[in-house]
Amino acid sequence: MKISATSSGGFAGITRQHEVDTATSPAGQALEAELASRAFFANPRGAAEEPVGADIPRWTITVDADGERHSVSFAEDGNPANARWRELLDRILAA
């Protein structure tokens, strides 16, 4: 399984990208379990309402697994609905 996390926006407009191959990462099994517990592939692609403001960082988490590709996007705007994606992002960035 390949996982990528890509940021855009933010005050400086810097793009960041982090990739994890769960087959080779020591955190791979834990990340796969985390994705399964969050029913990642069943979630909609993004938030229903995007916050206004170019200075708000936005992230897209993309997972490629078994010929299927799915992405979830969210803004780091403090919205409680995005907290679960921020938690997942933190685990991906730590891997």
Rank of each mutant, 00 (worst) to 15 (best):
K2S: 08
K2Q: 13
I3F: 00
A5P: 05
A5C: 11
T6E: 10
T6H: 06
T6Q: 10
T6I: 12
S7T: 11
S8H: 07
S8M: 11
G9Y: 02
G10R: 01
G10D: 03
F11L: 12
F11Q: 12
A12M: 13
A12V: 13
G13E: 06
I14F: 09
I14C: 06
I14W: 07
I14P: 06
T15P: 06
T15K: 13
T15W: 08
H18C: 11
H18I: 13
H18V: 15
E19S: 13
E19F: 05
E19T: 15
E19G: 10
D21C: 06
D21T: 12
A23E: 14
A23Y: 10
P26Q: 08
P26K: 12
P26N: 07
G28M: 00
G28I: 04
G28S: 05
G28F: 01
G28V: 02
A30N: 13
A30W: 08
E32I: 11
A33G: 12
A33L: 11
E34L: 11
L35H: 03
L35V: 02
L35K: 03
A36V: 13
A36S: 12
A36I: 07
A36C: 08
S37L: 05
R38A: 09
R38N: 06
F41R: 07
F41C: 07
F41T: 07
N43A: 12
P44M: 08
R45P: 05
G46P: 01
A47Q: 14
E49W: 03
V52N: 13
G53K: 09
G53V: 08
G53E: 09
A54S: 14
I56K: 03
P57S: 11
P57T: 10
R58S: 13
R58F: 05
W59R: 05
T60G: 06
I61M: 08
T62Y: 03
T62S: 12
T62G: 08
V63I: 11
V63M: 05
D64E: 15
D66T: 15
G67Y: 10
G67E: 09
E68N: 15
H70Q: 11
H70A: 09
S71H: 06
S71Y: 03
S71A: 15
V72C: 00
S73I: 04
S73E: 10
F74S: 02
A75I: 04
E76M: 08
D77K: 05
G78S: 04
G78Q: 05
G78I: 02
G78Y: 00
G78V: 00
G78M: 02
N79Q: 12
A81Y: 01
N82G: 09
A83M: 10
R84L: 07
R84G: 03
R84M: 07
W85C: 02
R86V: 13
R86D: 07
E87N: 09
L88G: 05
L89K: 05
L89E: 02
R91Y: 00
R91S: 10
I92H: 01
I92N: 01
I92W: 01
L93M: 10
L93P: 02
A95C: 08
